[in-house]
Computed example of a mutant assay.
Amino acid sequence: MIELATVIRDLRDELERAVVAAEGQALRFELGAIELEMSVALERSGHAEAKVRFWVVETGAQATVDGTSTQRIRLVLQPTLTGSDKTFIGGDVEAHEG
């Protein structure tokens, strides 16, 4: 499992790389709403500083993870670039290792 925040951070990193790759390209794609659908497990800590964490479950995982039931969620993200009206992606993006 991976934290939902990590999934979104990694998506942001990939999109930023695609935006950079689009600079100077004749063919570019305007970036619109991004829809993510995933299975998540909800974890609540029982400490005084109670926190809720969402974990993204790998495809094909069982309906329960360590006794925690999973739910399907759909997020719609609207990406924007600071100081820009439009965001374009395109070009070749090298594989990201990390």
Rank of each mutant, 00 (worst) to 15 (best):
M1G: 09
M1P: 04
M1N: 00
I2F: 07
E3N: 09
E3K: 12
L4I: 03
L4D: 01
T6I: 14
T6M: 10
V7E: 06
V7M: 06
I8F: 00
R9P: 00
D10Q: 15
D10H: 11
R12C: 01
D13V: 07
E14Q: 13
E14I: 09
L15N: 03
L15H: 05
L15Q: 03
L15D: 01
E16F: 01
E16Y: 03
R17C: 04
R17H: 12
A18P: 07
A18G: 05
A18W: 03
V19K: 01
V19I: 14
V20C: 06
V20S: 13
A21L: 04
A21V: 05
A22G: 10
E23S: 14
E23L: 09
G24A: 07
Q25S: 09
F29S: 05
E30N: 08
L31S: 04
G32D: 15
A33H: 05
I34V: 15
E35A: 09
E35P: 01
L36F: 02
L36G: 01
L36E: 02
M38C: 14
M38D: 00
M38G: 03
S39A: 14
S39C: 08
L42F: 09
L42T: 15
L42Y: 07
E43S: 02
R44A: 09
R44T: 07
R44W: 14
S45T: 15
G46M: 08
H47L: 13
A48H: 08
K51V: 13
K51S: 12
K51G: 00
K51F: 09
F54E: 10
W55E: 03
V56G: 00
V56M: 04
V56E: 03
E58V: 02
G60Y: 02
Q62A: 15
Q62I: 00
Q62K: 13
Q62V: 04
A63P: 10
A63I: 02
A63E: 14
V65C: 11
V65E: 11
D66Y: 04
G67T: 07
G67K: 11
G67A: 11
S69E: 15
S69H: 13
T70M: 10
Q71D: 14
R72S: 11
R72F: 01
I73G: 05
I73Y: 07
R74M: 08
L75M: 14
V76P: 00
L77V: 04
Q78W: 09
Q78K: 11
P79R: 05
P79H: 07
P79T: 06
P79A: 05
T80E: 11
L81T: 08
T82F: 06
G83D: 13
S84Y: 07
S84P: 00
T87E: 01
T87M: 07
F88Y: 15
F88V: 02
G90Y: 03
G90V: 02
G91W: 06
G91D: 12
G91S: 08
G91R: 02
V93Q: 05
H96Y: 12
E97P: 03
E97V: 12
